Simulated scan of single mutants.
Amino acid sequence: MSFEQLSQFNLGPDLFFGAGAIAHVQEIIEKEGFERVMIICDEGIEKAKILDQVMEQIKKTEAKCTVFSNVEANPTTGTVDAGMYLLERFQPDLLIGLGGGSPIDVAKALGMLATNGGQITDYEGMDKFEHESLPLLAIPTTAGTGSEVTIFTVVTDTATEYKLTAGGRKLAPKWALLDPELTLTLPRKITAATGLDALVHAIESYTSTMAHPLTEALALDAIRTISSNLRQAVYNGENLSARSAMLYGSLLAGIAFNNTRLGNVHAMSHPLSAKYNVPHGVANSVLLPHVMEFNLPAAPEKFMNIAKAMGESLDPSHPLMKNANKAVEAVKQLSTDIQIPKDFSDYNIPDEDIYPMAKDAMKSGNVLVNPRQTSIEDIIKLYEQTTGSAVSV
């Protein structure tokens, strides 16, 4: 451990955690004196009646409310523009991001644009905006993205088919309500993909070159919690204990990677989502074991710790690399158990698109903090392993 690396640590928004936490919506609105509330969500949240629960809390106050529910799985610049059209006419003083990472990311983008102007494409990178965002209350309904505590928003620029990231401390939600009861109706496939996405966050944060003792402790606890509860959440969605543990594990991972960035998995998943609309959780889940095998020689001790956190038995008589490789095997087994696809064959990605995707992946700052130094040729080989393509550079 290097204690010298710890210079600044972001703890995120005020948190309300536990069954029934949704009741704090009324408390926050009344305490802060908000008068106009805009909810950002997706159609699935409406169908699951979760939007109704939030609306019931708002109706207990004197605040007026409008809803923007047109957020898709991989939100685009067009979606942000449409949200801004409604925002500018309604003039809210509080935004509520309700759902998975996509609605919360769109809510972050809207909050920033409301006070800084311009287009979301103007703010790619870190701290490119000056003014505080509109106050944002984040209510996650999946245990996966950690977006409720992070300082980043990710949006696909449809003009370039590129996923851009804007970040800054002023972008983070001011409050986060984590109510596991809101995740009970999450479909099995989404529970699996978002849950493994949370595991990716924890593993990439733990192995990041920016990791330090605080983030390592959080990430390892997240790995332990997620790996020991994800199967139960997938196969018995009404298991409140497992759902609570998954939401907690996702939260820990979010706080960890908010301070460390991520790695090659996320760098590579963004072009897949931007060009082929692969769900973010699925993209990360498929890529994870391949990237872990690539990174293994650069941080075998850390991968051995990951294996132990995932419940694997380590043999002290075995070579370090053999014990470390048990982390990869544990992830593969977990993926198989919860029926994560083994590759991207369903998306019919042509050979000629691998190189452009690799170029886009190399633009990501996450490559710079990956534990093993990475070239574009490395990225191409990793894509080939998951798409069945063969590319010559």
Rank of each mutant, 00 (worst) to 15 (best):
K342E: 14
S205R: 01
A159K: 15
V71E: 04
S102H: 00
T209V: 09
V331A: 06
S317G: 12
R372Q: 13
K31E: 15
L136V: 05
Y248H: 13
S335K: 12
D353W: 05
R169K: 14
Y347N: 09
K60S: 11
T209D: 10
T194V: 12
L184C: 07
P371S: 08
P213M: 10
R231E: 15
S269P: 00
T153K: 00
T207M: 03
L196S: 07
L15T: 07
N259W: 09
M304K: 15
Q53P: 05
P173W: 05
Q119H: 15
V54E: 02
A211D: 05
G100W: 02
E161D: 09
I58S: 13
F9S: 02
Q57S: 10
P350S: 11
T374A: 09
M362I: 13
S285V: 09
A166L: 11
I39S: 04
K342S: 13
T66H: 12
D315K: 07
Y248W: 13
N236I: 02
V71H: 03
D351V: 08
F9T: 04
H318C: 07
A283T: 10
M210K: 14
E72P: 00
S313K: 15
H318N: 12
T183L: 11
M292I: 11
P271M: 03
L51D: 03
L94A: 03
L137Q: 06
H131M: 13
H24E: 15
M310K: 05
D14N: 14
V367G: 02
L199C: 05
V282G: 00
G195Q: 06
L15A: 10
N258R: 03
A172S: 15
L178A: 10
G168Y: 07
M84C: 01
I120A: 03
Y123D: 07
R188S: 13
E204I: 05
N264T: 08
N325I: 04
T194A: 12
H280E: 11
N236R: 09
K359P: 01
N323G: 08
S335E: 11
H24T: 13
K128Y: 03
G125L: 04
T209N: 13
D315M: 08
N74Q: 03
